[in-house]
């Protein structure tokens, strides 16, 4: 065992990479939940994003097109959830589960030809001069564009929710859909847009796993990241910056755990691999006392006739 072999600078840099899929999926789900919809299909949308992004990137040789395809793939799958919960008013918990089960199957079907294929590499944005700085360079200035995009999405979601009219309407729909409807806002239309945004973000997060983090395709490769993202939204009390904090915390746990595995610590590999899930549970327990910040209409079905 040799813990001194773990380089703290590389650790922080890889922590950010490990956290980005969770961050993308969670910030998307945050918007969905702020609009009052509980979509438990994050895992399914992520894995569909992972395979559609992977397939397009391999076929075209362009990771950028792959990421675009993954966002479209995630949003397309979320349309099924839209149909079930917004059009035919099905139970959101059951519909979300259906989305995950279906997405896992469909992705395995789509991915058959891509097992063992190497995807084109996603270029890093090595910002001149800045990326050569010691310590800060590798941590802050030499990542891939999607990682920066994920942080930009968090910042813009925060700004939109806090300072704009659109954000206010979205929150109104999530807090009290009947009142929002009475004020003339299109509850269903707003929710559909939120769900599709959530799907696109989850899809991007999935593609980040298959194209950058791993990078290859294996069945069920998201391995519960979508569910951790759902937990993260609760952890963050539905606040964007806390999602970022939480995602990096979980990223940190994952990376430290992997580094300890590599360093050959006396703890068996299986128990180290459990740790991200156990920590998610512990964090949920600590934070679940305070439910006051949850959107009041979360998970409730809206039907305009009454």
């Amino acid at each position: 065992m040799d813990i001194s072999a773990i380089n703290p600078v590389l650790l922080v840099a890889s922590l950010m990479v490990a956290a980005t899929p969770i961050l993308l999926a969670a910030i998307g789900e945050l918007v969905v939940e702020r609009a009052g919809v509980l979509n438990l299909g994050v895992e399914g949308m992520m894995i569909i994003g992972a395979i559609s992004g992977f397939a397009i990137a391999v076929e075209t040789g362009s990771p950028l097109l792959g990421f675009i395809a993954s966002a479209i793939g995630g949003a397309m799958l979320s349309l099924l959830f839209v149909f079930l919960t917004q059009v035919v008013l099905a139970n959101q918990v059951a519909s979300g589960l259906a989305l995950t089960l279906f997405g896992l199957g469909l992705s395995a079907l789509m991915g058959q030809r891509y097992v063992g294929v190497r995807p084109p590499q996603t270029a890093h944005l090595d910002i001149p001069f800045l990326s050569d700085m010691p310590v800060l360079g590798p941590i802050l200035f030499s990542h891939d564009p999607i990682l920066y995009l994920s942080i930009a999405i968090v910042a813009s979601i925060w700004a939109v929710l806090k300072y704009t009219r659109a954000g206010l309407i979205l929150r109104a729909v999530g807090e009290n859909h009947d009142a929002a409807h009475a004020l003339g806002y299109k509850v269903v239309r707003i929710r559909i847009m939120a769900i599709m945004f959530g799907g696109a973000c989850a899809g991007l997060g999935g593609a980040y796993i298959s194209l950058v983090r791993v990078p290859q395709w294996t069945e069920g490769m998201t391995a519960g990241v979508g569910w951790i993202a759902l937990a993260l939204v609760v952890f963050a009390s539905w606040k964007p910056w806390r999602v970022l904090l939480g995602a990096y915390l979980f990223g940190g746990v994952t990376v430290v755990q992997l580094n300890l595995q590599a360093a050959g610590v006396a703890i068996p590999v299986e128990y180290l691999a459990m740790s991200p899930y156990l920590i998610t549970i512990i964090v949920l327990v600590i934070l679940s006392k305070d439910k006051s910040s949850a959107p009041a209409s979360l998970g409730r079905i809206f039907h305009a006739s009454h």
Partner: peptide, 22 residues
């Protein structure tokens, strides 16, 4: 027939069930 096709098939079943439940 790929093994995953049956998984999709089962997932589809749940979808239609929830949809027709309306």
């Amino acid at each position: 027939l790929p093994a995953a096709a049956i998984q999709v098939f089962q997932g589809m079943l749940l979808f239609f069930l929830l949809a027709f439940d309306i």
